[in-house]
Amino acid sequence: MTPHNELRLLPWSGPDGKPCYLSTDDSSSYVSRLANNTEAIQLDLAADLVAHALEALNEERTDPDELRRLTADLTDALKDTLRVATSRGHRLQTPGILGRDGDDGPRLPAAAFG
C-alpha cells in the first residue's frame, strides 16, 4: 500500500459550501468507496447533460427557459467534474515532476518542444 501523504478532496461540499477532505490510507474504506461511486455518478450525469446540450443545440428552436435550465445544469456538472479532476489529479503519483521537496525531475532539451 502506498503511504498516505495527501488529503483526498471529496466530491461533495460541507456546510456553507466548504470543501470536504478525507484522510485515510485505506482506498477501500467505506468513505473512499462512497466517494468513488459519487464521482462516477457525477461524471455519468455530466456526460448525459453534454449529450442533451448537443441535441438542444442541433434543434432549430429551443425554448429559452429550457436553455437557461440546461446552462445551469451544465454549470453544476462542470463544477462537479472539475472537483473530480482536481481530486484525482492530486492522487496521481507522478515521479519526476516538480515536487514539494524541490526535485524538478528530468529535463528535456529545447529540441524536444519543436
Rank of each mutant, 00 (worst) to 15 (best):
A85G: 04
E55H: 07
L67Y: 08
D63N: 10
R91I: 01
D65N: 05
V50L: 09
D76K: 12
R61M: 13
P95G: 03
E59N: 14
T86F: 03
R68T: 15
V84M: 02
D103L: 02
D63C: 08
A47C: 08
E55P: 07
L67K: 06
P106S: 09
L67T: 10
P106N: 06
A53S: 13
D63L: 04
R83V: 04
N58K: 10
N58L: 07
P64L: 00
R83F: 01
G89C: 08
G102Q: 03
D80K: 03
L54I: 14
K79R: 11
L49G: 03
E59F: 02
L45H: 13
L108V: 09
S87D: 00
L54S: 10
D104V: 12
Q93G: 11
D63V: 04
L54R: 12
L78C: 12
V50G: 07
H90F: 05
L67N: 08
L78Q: 06
T62S: 10
A77D: 10
G99S: 12
D101I: 14
R61V: 14
D76A: 12
L82C: 14
L108R: 09
G96M: 05
G105F: 01
D103F: 13
R100D: 12
G102A: 01
I97A: 10
D101N: 08
G99A: 06
R91A: 06
L54A: 03
A56V: 13
E66I: 15
A47D: 13
L45V: 13
T81F: 02
R100F: 15
H90A: 08
L45W: 07
D103M: 02
G105V: 00
G99K: 00
A53I: 02
A46W: 01
P95A: 00
T62W: 01
R91L: 06
E59M: 01
R107F: 14
R68N: 13
A72E: 12
T71P: 12
P64Q: 01
D48V: 15
L108W: 15
L74T: 13
E55S: 09
L57R: 08
G96S: 05
A46F: 08
G96H: 05
H52T: 13
A47K: 03
I97T: 09
G99Q: 00
E60V: 13
A56K: 09
L45K: 03
L78S: 14
A56P: 09
A77P: 11
A85F: 10
R100K: 09
D48M: 12
R88T: 05
I97N: 11
R83A: 05
T62H: 01
G96R: 02
